[in-house]
């Protein structure tokens, strides 16, 4: 393995400083990067020493790198077939990490992603309970949000009494669900309210 030398620098206002804890081997290319929430930096790295070697994902946070245990290939093959190279990382406002293969967009379920990171500090019981809760809530979140967006689309196309009521009903249902979800989160792990809670809170602002 070639020696680790800085590939990432931060600007301190007067000079470029190596990003603490973000050294990767000299022959490992950083193919893409994007900023995430909580001062995270997601990295797509060609992890071998030769061109064309498998890619790996990593997350820099709190001055160290956390490597995604699987390769993008293993993640992609859950739902996709064919090409496995990733391009272009991007985070949406909820903190969800996206990338694209040659032919498809790919979204990394963020809870799975965090759980799969080497050494990520989340090994206690309350964390495990929280992740389980998050995974249940996340699918519900998409269902409820999808319902609201559909209602809004209908409302935008035809503004009538029926669609207005449907919109109002979807919105009320989502807000009620968000409040309940936040209560569940607080009850499960009051000191671990984090990104998902933030994400739910944004819905309340609609």
């Amino acid at each position: 393995m070639s020696p680790a030398v800085p590939a990432l620098y931060r600007w301190d206002g007067t000079a470029w400083r190596p990003l603490e804890g973000a050294h990767v081997a000299a022959k490992q290319d950083i193919e893409d990067l994007c900023a995430g929430p909580d001062r995270r930096l997601y990295l797509l790295i060609e992890a071998g020493e030769e061109a064309g070697d498998p890619q790996r994902l990593a997350c820099w946070k709190d001055d160290r790198l956390y490597w995604y245990k699987g390769t993008p290939e293993t993640a992609i093959q859950k739902n996709h077939s064919g090409t496995v190279n990733l391009y272009r990382l991007a985070c949406d406002y909820t903190g969800l990490l996206h990338a694209r293969t040659y032919s498809s967009p790919l979204t990394f379920p963020w809870a799975d992603f965090d759980r799969a990171m080497d050494g990520y500090p989340q090994q206690d019981a309350s964390a495990a309970a929280l992740w389980a809760l998050f995974q249940r809530l996340e699918s519900e979140y998409y269902t409820k949000t999808g319902s609201l967006v559909a209602a809004y689309r209908n409302y935008g196309m035809t503004t009538n009494e029926v669609n207005t009521k449907r919109l109002s009903k979807s919105s009320t249902a989502l807000q009620a669900w968000v409040k309940a979800a936040n209560d569940s989160l607080e009850g499960t792990a009051p000191k671990r309210m984090n990104r998902l809670a933030d994400r739910f809170s944004q819905v309340l602002e609609l």
Binding site: P6, L8, Y9, W11, W16, D32, L33, P37
Partner: peptide, 25 residues
């Protein structure tokens, strides 16, 4: 902006959520 960094060239510039400017080389 400051002095040179070791490497061929800056490949990407991004801003962290706290505003810190970061680059890959």
């Amino acid at each position: 902006m400051g002095k040179a960094m070791k490497g061929l060239h800056v490949d990407r510039l991004v801003r962290l959520s706290d505003g810190t400017l970061v680059c890959s080389v």
